[in-house]
């Protein structure tokens, strides 16, 4: 049970407290709406994250399988050397979108795939399996970039959700009950004072009448 605040039981305080309760209630209602919307967004992103992770892992699995075949055909050292010859700088265009004040990254479709000539290794000394391996890894990278975007969104939304939930709970279970308890206490105290006054007046009246 919430304990009442220590406050002097006056009518002015009662009015102030009623105003505070209505503000807290308004804040609570709006924050709860925000929390519900965040939950919806969070689960939506989570579903996308699961799908994107599965797709990325499947693609990576396929890429590593082709890489093993490439190692077996070309030899490990040759494959690694060819890989060292390639140069890559991936340019990502990152913008942002806002979900209820949370900045969520948006990565434009990265142009990861390129043709065998652009990769930089010698086509004369390497097997076609290396091309296939590169292609598979490029596709996996594309999926991983998309997955990173979704995971970053999920983290950001989850963090905000946690904060909002804490605030909603603080209002719902601590502040509002405490204020209502205090209002109840002041109302009771004021009623009590009114009754005391009434009795006192009656007593004074009786004494005055006795004296007459």
């Amino acid at each position: 049970m919430a304990t009442a605040l220590t406050i002097s039981p006056t009518r002015m305080e009662l009015i102030k407290l009623k105003r505070r309760v209505s503000l807290a209630q308004r804040g609570h209602d709006l924050l709860r709406e925000k929390m519900d919307a965040l939950v919806m967004e969070f689960f939506d992103v989570l579903k996308k994250v699961q799908g994107s992770r599965t797709r990325a892992l499947e693609r990576l699995f396929r890429a590593y399988r082709v890489l093993s075949e490439c190692f077996a055909t070309m030899g490990t050292i040759e494959t690694v050397e060819s890989a060292r010859e390639t140069k890559r700088e991936l340019q990502l265009e990152i913008s942002s979108r806002h979900v209820m004040g949370i900045t969520v990254p948006v990565i434009e479709d990265p142009k990861v795939e390129r043709n065998a000539l652009a990769r930089g290794y010698s086509l004369y000394t390497t097997s076609s399996l290396l091309d296939e391996t590169s292609k598979e890894f490029e596709q996996a990278l594309k999926l991983l970039v998309k997955h990173a975007e979704l995971e970053a969104s999920a983290f950001a939304i989850g963090k905000e959700l946690e904060k909002t939930k804490r605030r909603v709970n603080a209002l719902e279970y601590i502040l509002i009950p405490k204020l209502q308890e205090t209002i109840k206490f002041i109302s009771m105290r004021l009623d009590e004072m009114e009754r005391e006054n009434f009795t006192r007046l009656k007593r004074i009246k009786a004494i005055l009448e006795e004296r007459r």
Binding site: L23, A24, R26, G27, L30, L31, K34, H98, V99, M100, G101, I102, R167, L171
Partner: peptide
Amino acid sequence: IKLELSRLNVH
């Protein structure tokens, strides 16, 4: 609470 309410629509 007022700060929180004012922050609700900053996006």
